[in-house]
Deep mutational scan, measured.
Amino acid sequence: SADYSSLTVVQLKDLLTKRNLSVGGLKNELVQRLIKDDEESKGE
């Protein structure tokens, strides 16, 4: 998976916004949300 932890919070929020995901929470939560979304989209 992508190394989201190396991105800035601003970059993470931009990715979340593009996916229509919540941008609330700490950086670690944003990273986990993106990883979870990646895993769910692979399952389709």
Score class of each variant (00 low, 15 high):
E39T: 08
L15E: 08
Y4I: 02
Q11H: 05
K13Q: 11
S6E: 09
I35A: 06
D37L: 05
S22Y: 08
Q11I: 06
R19M: 02
V9K: 06
I35V: 09
V23R: 08
T17M: 14
Y4A: 01
Q32P: 01
L12N: 00
S41I: 10
D3S: 09
T8L: 05
L21H: 03
D3H: 11
K42P: 07
G43H: 13
S41V: 09
I35S: 05
K27P: 06
G24Y: 14
D14V: 14
E40I: 10
V9R: 06
E40S: 11
L34N: 00
L12H: 00
S1A: 13
L30V: 02
L12E: 00
L34P: 00
L34I: 04
V31E: 05
R33Q: 03
L16R: 00
E39V: 09
K13N: 06
Y4V: 01
K36E: 10
V31R: 05
D3Q: 11
V10M: 14
G24N: 15
L16P: 00
K27W: 09
E29P: 01
L26D: 15
V10C: 15
Y4H: 02
L7H: 04
D3V: 10
E29R: 05
S1C: 13
V10L: 14
K36R: 12
L21I: 04
S1F: 14
V10P: 14
K18L: 10
L16D: 00
L34D: 01
D14R: 15
Q11R: 06
K42W: 09
N20A: 07
K13I: 14
D38Q: 04
E40Y: 10
K13R: 15
D37P: 02
S6N: 12
Q11M: 07
D3K: 14
D38R: 04
L21G: 01
R33P: 02
S41N: 13
G24L: 15
N20R: 11
K18T: 07
L15R: 04
L34H: 00
D37G: 05
K36F: 07
E40H: 11
G25F: 03
N28C: 11
S41H: 15
V10N: 14
T8D: 07
V9Y: 08
E39Y: 10
E39F: 10
K27H: 08
K18W: 06
A2L: 13
T8Q: 04
T17H: 12
I35E: 07
L30Y: 03
L12A: 00
N28Q: 12
D37A: 11
V31W: 03
L12Y: 00
E29H: 06
V10G: 12
L21K: 04
L12F: 00
L7K: 05
L34Y: 01
G24T: 15
T8W: 02
V23S: 09
A2Y: 14
S5L: 10
L26H: 12
Q32G: 07
D14K: 14
G25H: 02
N20P: 00
S41F: 09
L26G: 14
E44C: 15
S6T: 10
V31H: 02
T8E: 05
G43T: 12
N20Y: 06
S22T: 07
L12T: 00
K18H: 08
L16K: 00
G25A: 03
K13G: 03
L15M: 08
S1T: 13
L21D: 01
S22C: 09
E40D: 12
D14F: 14
S5Q: 11
V9G: 03
G43I: 13
L26V: 10
S1Q: 12
S5A: 13
S6F: 08
L12M: 03
R33G: 02
I35K: 08
E44N: 13
G43C: 13
K27I: 07
N20S: 07
Y4N: 00
R19A: 02
I35L: 12
